[in-house]
Structure formats: C-alpha cells, structure tokens
C-alpha cells in the first residue's frame, strides 16, 4: 500500500517537474550538480567562474565542444569537456539554460568557536 502511495506521489512530482524542466532526467541533474563545486548552486556562481544558470544553450554547447576538440583554449575546462559525451554536453546545456539566475546567499561565515 505504502509503495503504491509512493508511486502515485512520484508520478505527480514527475509530471510537475516535467512541466518545468522539459528534458531534465535524474542523470542530468545529478551530473549538473557536480559542476556546482566551481560554478555554484544550480549554476549560480558566487564569482570567479562563469554563471551557467540561464546561459544560452547554443553558446554553452559551442564553448564546451570547443574545449572538447581543442579549438577553444582553456586552463581547466578541457579536462572536463573531453571527458563528457556530446549527448551529455547537450543535456547540460539544456538543463542550465532552464535554471533561474539567482543572487547567491551570502556564505554563513562565523568565527571559529574552538570546539573541534
């Protein structure tokens, strides 16, 4: 019973999220989330790296394909682009294009309390 309930709920979530994130699969949002270490939560960088949220899809693909085939020089990104498939690059482009640009939260800095 619990399982059926969970499945119905999941279907609702899936339909809801489909309507807002057309081609977003769980594989894509998990891969996209691993970009956050450098490019910020949901592609909203705190600075120092490009913001990917709401980036033009074609531009994203053009840059990444360029890093991948070596026609665009980079410091770090070629090491990532070369490891991704063209399909993954396309899926990431579509995912990030749909993310809203947001002002990032300020980091919750706090003085060292000395406990650890």
């Amino acid at each position: 019973m619990k399982q059926i309930y969970a499945r119905i709920l999941w279907a609702c979530i899936a339909i809801w999220s489909l309507s807002t994130h057309a081609e977003d699969s769980s594989a894509t949002h998990t891969l996209a989330a691993s970009c956050a270490a450098c490019h910020g939560p949901n592609g909203n960088s705190l600075g120092g790296t490009p913001t990917l949220a709401a980036l033009n899809q074609a531009y994203f693909v053009q840059r990444m394909q360029g890093f991948k085939d070596g026609s665009v020089t980079s410091t770090v990104m070629h090491h990532h682009a070369k490891g991704l498939t063209t399909e993954e690059i396309t899926a990431l482009a579509s995912y990030f294009a749909q993310q809203p640009r947001q002002t990032a939260h300020a980091l919750p800095h706090q003085s060292f309390l000395g406990a650890q």
Partner: peptide, 21 residues
C-alpha cells in the same frame, strides 16, 4: 599560476555555497 589561484578561491567559495546554503 596566479590565475589558478583565483579559480581555486572561486572553487572554495562555490563548494562552500553548495554545501552550506
């Protein structure tokens, strides 16, 4: 390089933001 020093700082701030906000 100094440029990568700036990227490294950006990495830190972005991963902190992803983890802590």
């Amino acid at each position: 390089s100094v440029q990568e020093g700036e990227y490294a700082q950006a990495w830190a701030e972005n991963i902190w933001a992803d983890t802590l906000t």
